[in-house]
């Protein structure tokens, strides 16, 4: 099982190396363990996270791609869909079986035809458009709804921090 996971990860790594999406770099932290990756994500243009470079880690299960990886932001974040410890709450990271929000979104659930690239692109979309309905960070959700200005200020500060400036 791990063999096919490795092959698949290798294939995705190659794809992401030779033809990465805009503002994304991803790969194994250390090739001795192919199941732990680090990805750099650039905050999408025209949003409050614009310009930031956020560090995330991806941990793959040995039966990948049957099961999705776990993803966590290592850079400090403040976002309605990111938990305080950096875990990301996004439908593509959930297998269709576990269903916290009602099954209609199963089209965006994890399935083996999804990929690291798609996860990272989804996360970028999530940065651009927080979904304040499924609040992983209640404070951030509330602020996003009620005090957008303040939210933008905090995000701007995080962008600066992410670049260590």
């Amino acid at each position: 099982m791990a063999g096919s996971a490795l092959k698949r990860l290798m294939a995705e790594y190659k794809q992401l190396t030779v033809n990465p999406p805009e503002g994304i770099i991803a790969g194994p932290v250390n090739e001795e363990n192919f199941f732990e990756w680090e990805a750099l994500i650039t905050g999408p243009e025209g949003t409050c996270f614009e310009g930031g470079v956020f560090q995330t880690e991806l941990k793959f299960p040995t039966d990948y791609p049957l099961n999705p990886p776990k993803m966590r932001f290592k850079t400090e974040m403040f976002h309605p869909n990111i938990y305080a410890d950096g875990r990301v709450c996004i439908s593509i990271l959930h297998a269709p079986g576990d269903d916290p929000m009602g099954y209609e979104s199963s089209a965006e659930r994890w399935s083996p035809v999804q990929s690291v690239e798609k996860i990272l692109l989804s996360v970028i979309s999530m940065l651009a458009e927080p979904n304040d309905e499924s609040g992983a960070n209640v404070d951030a959700s509330k602020m996003w709804r009620d005090d957008r200005e303040k939210f933008y200020r905090i995000a701007g500060e995080l962008v600066r921090k992410s670049l260590s400036l």
């Binding site: 790594y13 190659k14 190396t17 030779v18 033809n19 990465p20 999406p21 805009e22 503002g23 770099i25 650039t42 999408p44 243009e45 025209g46 949003t47 869909n81 996004i90 439908s91 593509i92 929000m101 209609e104 979104s105 089209a107 965006e108 692109l121 989804s122 996360v123 970028i124 979309s125 999530m126 651009a128 458009e129 979904n131 499924s134």
Partner: peptide, 30 residues
């Protein structure tokens, strides 16, 4: 049907339009 906002390609892709100063960091080879 009923896509959550983060997964929705069609609505979000517009936001991800590449900037003129391209930020694509591709390696020449693997």
């Amino acid at each position: 049907f009923c896509v959550t906002s983060q997964g929705n390609d069609s609505s979000s892709s517009t936001l991800l339009t590449p900037s003129p100063a391209s930020t694509k960091f591709a390696a020449d080879k693997f």
